[in-house]
Write a protein that binds this DNA or RNA. Structure first.
Length: 952
RNA sequence: GCAGGGGUUCCCGAGUGGUCAAAGGGGGCGGACUCAAGAUCCGCUGUCAAGCGCUUCGCAGGUUCGAAUCCUGCCCCCUGCACCA
């Protein structure tokens, strides 16, 4: 037999697929399409296990869908703009372009070595001007649509990255990329008005198949809250404070109003008064620390009275105005109506500054509110309202009535607030898409003409270590230009685009990647993107950033008329982490670098244990895909990845598990060769094996269609081998049946381990490669299969049960066991059973008519067995204690077997030799209960499919 | 605090009313083959008095003829958001 040699097999088929261009796909409206996409990689160097996992999942789905007849679009590209290449260029004194391209080449060869079935013609790199020119083109389109805005605003600045960041890219006040601290800075920046799509982005989440947590994160991020802007006129002034609240039902409990210290009214109110000094102190303090710290680090709420009063618009009461450090200027209106009776934060503040607390909602209808010493924040019934017509109202009705009154009196209006902000997309960095605008002293900020696109990044830029700032700004050849409008001397914008911009539409570009007259053609986009990308696979880390931007882009481009689709991804699968063991100190709860394995904990000195942690360079617990491929072959790595865990679960790297998967590949290979070389004419197990194959294939196809790859692979790569081996043990299969089995099995091996599948498919003399073969997986599984499979399971069960009673028998019997005696159930039991099954299918009421039926039966007439019959009938239709009657517990397979009057005696006799050898016993006797000696009194307890088994 | 997801046998993990002492894998144990090792194959892997037995699916109750599965309360873990008015 030939050894399993993956390198040779894999190289051969990768070349064959490539030569035949089988993975290239075109628009074909006669076939159903399947767009399979993975989040494309940032080319940081070599492929890592996270990539291997992501793309192994995608590739097996793409291959599965092709096999099932879909027209599959499965492209790959590189998200190749971004800071690491720029930083590397600085360090090594090169150009980011060169760094990027050498990385792309390295990762491409890794991808090819894994055998992923991409349509390589569509390969793209976002840092290529043939791609980013369309970034610019789209930007100008958005500008025409009024979605682009340049404005001065406080923005998030990352010192380490030397650039601004969008809100989505700041996590806990730290940069998402480098984890450096972010500070606020006022700058003129470019924004995309994503907020115009806030409602659609939120509402259409309902209809797409995203994991719940991703949807929750997006909902949370968009943060829509319905409320009302209430006007609080300032006493002795024309100014009005607009306060946003979601709880207008508490308006009668307002005892003060709080402004953010940055609120412009603060200045006006305190200027020149005795309160100015205190206010200034607070404002300065707040200005010094970031908004984040103010909100997060401040446990104590601080405020200062501003010396003035505002009027409650519904009661005319005057309430003091404070500036408070806990009020966020950028949310709502930067002013809060404070209701200490029903808001804990206001309650704390009121206590501290001795402001009255008024309760205006009651927890119980028609009762006074309980005084609890804290704020009641739930919904309640209005009480103590300062005006008639409000007391007794509850919840939404209370809110609506207040809003209605305010609107009628022009003292407020219902509004919706969002947490989502416009997307700040300019970056003060070199390695990104230049923003296609020109600054002209006389015409202002002017868009570049379409005809002048692309605005290309210059290649003659020198990067030097330690230099900060954007080298574009000092590149005269780039900066100096003429105004498209007046022709005068002008300067180019030197900010570039956030790289998330690049990935916000790349899935549309893939639909028509070679187009050089438009970003993509509508016909192509509408075909491939109908109902969105059918399967999108990637990491959870982009839940709010990339996935939200891409959804926004798709809608905005739709409104620009470029495509019909509104949601880019119809089904999202976030693959879990790949973890690996790393040293861990239980006492300190700290993970350490693998170099410390075997050493004591550097902190507490105790012995280090081990636990699974995300593979990372910093822990050193990474495993190199290249080395694994070299050692075991790509197919084994793919099998390990897919079998290790279902796509969404985390998985642990294990050396012994990949070892064991490699053994499994060899076992599969050996079984396949055995099948191919099999010359046998006789095949005792033909029927069974083929029935098993039909069932397995149907289950497998269902699992695969559902992206339950682990379950699918379990069937194709484990159960199919086990069945094959069982068939060999049980008498073997004929050459023809074996071949048919392989014809079913090999395609099932193909999605996960395509190389071995293709190799053995060819050995079966198939002319077409599996890569170009279409199969029908919807074949019905017949009832006769149930009986065939059920019989074999019956045999296994008999052997199992015989084994389990053997030990007992050995204790009871002196000397060696010589025989096993199997007594199958009495004929009348089988008859009653099949009748009961039939009756049960016809919804017979056994409680009602069971006894009457039984009395009419022949077997019931014999006084000597009457008791047994009665007892059996109960076990059959009613059951006892915990176990329900057999007609309920039997599955379809058992029922079919019993109904078919399966002859247990004949079947066991035929297989007596096998049973004897499986049990290691000389003699197997079998007869129907009552037709031979009742060994160990097992005749009575025998049931259909559960014969009495005794040893002697 | 809010939102989302979890807690299953030695470990990972499937299981959403009865076919469940609970798939599959890992690990462990035993056996076959072998001079030996590896590889491969087979079996066992809650418990006992071996059964219509007993105990077990985070904890405590409840519904049901019957609960890992449904309901209520509680505890714990992970993820995201957060003085958001």
């Amino acid at each position: 037999m030939v050894d399993y040699l993956p390198e040779a097999i894999e190289a051969r088929w990768q070349a064959a697929w490539n030569d035949a261009a089988v993975f290239e796909s075109e628009v074909d409206s006669s076939r159903p399409k399947f767009y399979c996409l993975e989040m494309f990689p940032y080319p940081s160097g070599q492929m890592h296990m996270g990539h291997v996992r992501n793309y192994s999942i995608g590739d097996s789905m793409a291959r599965f869908r092709r096999l099932a007849g879909f027209n599959v679009l499965y492209p790959m590209g590189y998200d190749s703009f971004g800071m690491p290449a720029e930083n590397a260029a600085r360090k090594m004194g090169g150009h980011p372009h060169d760094v990027t391209w050498s990385n792309i080449e390295s990762i491409r060869s890794d991808l090819k070595r894994m055998g992923f079935s991409y349509d390589w013609r569509r390969e793209l790199a976002t840092s290529d001007s043939s791609y980013y020119r369309w970034n610019q083109w789209i930007f100008l389109k958005f500008h025409e649509m009024g979605l682009v805005e340049r404005r001065t605003a406080p923005v998030n600045w990352c010192d380490d990255c030397d650039t601004v960041l969008a809100n989505e890219q700041v996590k806990n006040n730290r940069c998402w990329r480098c984890a450096g601290e972010v500070r606020q800075k006022d700058m003129a920046q470019w924004f995309l008005k994503m907020t115009e799509y806030a409602d659609e982005l939120l509402d259409s989440l309902e209809g797409i198949e995203f994991p719940e947590n991703v949807k929750a994160m997006q909902r949370n991020w968009i943060g829509r809250s319905h409320g009302v802007d209430i006007h609080f006129p300032i006493v002795d002034s024309d100014e009005v404070i607009q306060a946003f609240t979601t709880r207008p039902d508490t308006i009668f409990g307002v005892t003060f109003v709080t402004l953010a210290p940055e609120h412009p009214l603060c200045e006006d109110l305190v200027k020149g008064t005795e309160f100015e000094a205190d206010y200034r102190e607070l404002a300065d303090e707040c200005a010094k620390i970031s908004e984040f710290d103010r909100i997060n680090m401040l446990r104590d709420k601080k405020g200062v009275f501003l010396g003035r009063y505002a009027t409650n618009p519904l009661t005319g009461e005057s309430v003091p105005i404070y500036a408070g450090n806990f009020v966020v200027a950028s949310y709502g209106t930067g002013a809060v109506m404070a209701v200490p009776g029903h808001d804990q934060r206001d309650h704390d503040f009121a206590k501290k500054y001795d402001i009255p607390i008024v309760q205006v909602l009651s927890e119980e209808q028609n009762k006074d509110p309980k005084v609890t010493g804290r704020a009641f924040e739930g919904l309640g019934w209005m009480v103590n309202s300062g005006r008639d017509g409000f007391d007794g109202l509850y919840g939404d009705e209370a809110k609506a009535t207040v809003i209605g009154t305010l609107e009628a009196e022009s003292m407020g209006s219902g509004t919706i607030q969002y947490r989502l902000k416009d997307w700040l997309l300019s970056r003060q960095r070199f390695w990104g898409t230049p923003i296609p605008f020109i600054h002209c002293e006389s015409c202002g900020v002017v868009p570049v003409q379409d005809a002048d696109l692309p605005v290309e990044l210059p290649l003659d830029v020198v990067f030097t270590e330690g230099e900060s700032g954007n080298p574009l700004a000092s590149h005269d050849g780039f900066v100096n230009t003429s105004c498209p409008s007046c022709g005068g001397a002008a300067k180019r914008e030197t900010d570039t685009m956030d790289t998330f911009y690049d990935s916000s539409w790349y899935f549309l570009r893939f639909a028509d990647a070679l187009n050089n007259t438009a970003p993509f053609d509508k016909i192509n986009a509408d075909y491939w993107m109908e109902d969105g990308v059918d399967l999108y696979i990637g990491g959870i880390e982009h839940a709010v950033m990339h996935l939200l931007y891409a959804r926004f882009f798709t809608k905005a481009l739709r409104d620009a008329g470029l495509n019909d689709v509104s949601e880019p991804f119809s089904r999202l699968v976030c693959q879990g982490m790949v973890n690996a063991p790393t040293p861990f100190c239980v006492d300190c709860n700290v993970e350490y670098h693998v170099d410390l394995e075997g050493s004591p904990c550097p902190t507490c000195g105790n012995a280090l244990g081990s636990r699974s942690a995300k593979m990372s360079k910093s822990l050193g617990n990474t495993v190199s895909p290249e080395i694994m491929i070299e050692k075991y072959g790509a197919d084994t790595v793919r099998l390990f990845i897919l079998f290790g865990a279902n796509p969404e679960a985390g998985m642990d790297w294990s050396d012994s598990a990949i070892e064991s998967n490699h053994r499994q590949m060899r076992a599969i290979h050996a079984s396949l060769l055995q099948g191919i070389e099999n010359q046998s004419d006789a095949g005792e197990m033909d029927e069974w094996l083929l029935a098993r194959a039909r069932r397995a294939q149907s289950d497998w196809a269902n699992n695969m269609a559902d992206v339950s790859l682990r379950d699918g692979v379990m069937i194709s790569h484990f159960e199919m081998v086990a069945d094959w081996q069982w068939a060999q043990r049980r008498g073997g299969v004929s050459a023809n049946a074996g071949r048919e089995y392989l014809m079913n099995w090999i395609p099932m091996l193909y999605p996960a381990t395509p190389h071995l599948a293709e190799e053995t498919w060819r050995m079966l003399d198939n002319k077409e490669m599996l890569a170009e073969t279409v199969l029908n997986f919807d074949r019905p599984v017949g009832e006769s299969d149930s009986i065939i499979i059920g019989r074999e399971e019956y045999l296994k069960r008999v052997v199992d049960r015989a084994r389990s009673v053997r030990e007992l028998a050995e204790r009871h019997i002196e000397g060696e066991l010589s025989a096993v005696t199997i007594q199958t159930a009495h004929v009348w039991k089988v008859e009653l059973s099949s009748q009961a099954i039939e009756m049960h299918d016809g919804d017979f009421d056994f409680k009602e008519g069971g006894n009457k039926f039984l009395q009419s039966q022949q077997c019931f007439q014999d006084e000597s067995t009457k008791g047994d019959v009665m007892q059996f009938w109960r076990a059959l239709v009613v059951g006892q204690k915990k176990r329900r009657g057999r007609i309920h517990t039997w599955g379809n397979q058992e029922r079919a077997l019993v109904s078919s009057r399966f002859d247990e005696v004949a079947f066991i006799s035929e297989n007596a030799d096998f049973i004897a050898s499986a049990l290691g016993i000389g003699t197997v006797e079998v007869y129907r209960a009552g037709e031979g000696e009742d060994v160990a009194g097992k005749a009575r307890t025998s049931l259909p499919l559960e014969p009495g088994i005794a040893w002697r």
